[in-house]
Write a protein that binds this DNA or RNA. Sequence first.
DNA 1: TCGAACTCATA
DNA 2: TATGAGTTCGA
Length: 455
Amino acid sequence: MSNKVPVVQHPHHVHPLTPLITYSNEHFTPGNPPPHLQADVDPKTGIPRPPHPPDISPYYPLSPGTVGQIPHPLGWLVPQQGQPVYPITTGGFRHPYPTALTVNASMSSLLSSRFPPHMVPPHHSLHTTGIPHPAIVTPNVKQESSHSDIGSLNSSKHQDAKKEEEKKKQPHIKKPLNAFMLYMKEMRAKVVAECTLKESAAINQILGRRWHALSREEQAKYYELARKERQLHMQLYPGWSARDNYAGNYQGKKKKRKREKQAGEGNEHREYFPNPCLSLPPITDLSAPKKCRARFGLDQQNNWCGPCRRKKKCIRYIQGEGSCASPPSSDGSLLESPPSSPSMISPSPSSKESKPQTEQMQPLSLTMKPPPLLSSSQHQHLSMAPPPPLALLDNSGAGKTSGSAHNGSLDPSDVSSSRSTGSASSRPISACHSHSLLPSSAPTQPLSLVTKSID
DNA sequence: TCGAACTCATA
DNA sequence: TATGAGTTCGA
């Protein structure tokens, strides 16, 4: 990941509101020189960059001089005397934030934020503000590849390294955000606020569910937005294509090993838990330890069955003990006893074909990152813990997530308390989920999800 | 399969 | 501080 240069990206800077929130200079971090006095050159990349205050998305095409004016976020895209190159649909995106910020503005900033001016190819000189193009990341040319000098045993490797380095010197043109990404960017903050979630993975899951809960119309807007962004991207970088981006701009970034998608695991959970927050069981990985992993532990992976090694469905116990496929059903949670009828799964309006039932049985292994290295005994402990009582979330009528309408709380305290209390409480998750079912049990607490394992 | 955004944990 | 892992979806 040495090539992933966060030069122009800062996780917290993408909040759609930041452009408005942070316009005031008083918001600038004390000690920071006034933006206009700041050197605009990124020390790392040498690329001029906008003197954004820390809170402002570096993408946001605001030059210091524009502070206070709040120009149209797409201003840089708007040719002096022409129509915006990048017409933004004014379709009614919902307002993701409580502020008066229009979604259009928000979305516009999302878009424009990726296309600040100065990185635009020369022939597309749309602006002269000298703001780096967020979609272009000049990778840090690190010395890491110089290790090939050592002995230069392998001249070919050396050459490769050089080539790679040269590649690195070329700015990396980021892919335009796809529809989901746009949606994610916009909604992340909201989800975080609602659920007080910190774990990006969990948030993304929620966002994914919400995404599918969106009406087609809403999705279409994002698709359209993404399409436009792609078009714009293509305009800005005529030679660019997703493929090229991969083949040409690929900087040798180490691939993340993607978690094996456990047979559509994600989707069925989506179906089960329309409520973004509620949908995340406190301990999603509980099921995993029931497999070879639990049995043998991490230190005996050689004993695991193949699928388990690949984090796939354990075949051994499905066939042998069946514990994986059908964990002891102590409380009748849905997880343990898959829906007997498809009606249990209320398809979201835009959901794709429902997954095979077998997939529905897949344990939910999201959100919860189990302790990095659980000892076998710990795994055993986990495996003996009551199965995640995901229960009862009959999504009917809830398929369409209406944002904060789902005000379920997954406050860890709820979970823990519910665990130690009454019978119904032996289902921590259901307790959480039940907020929507049993409103009385849950005052309006900030949503929170337990993303860490519970003691 | 990769890459996009994002956060957290770790070396 | 940098990197990897983890999640999502689209291309």
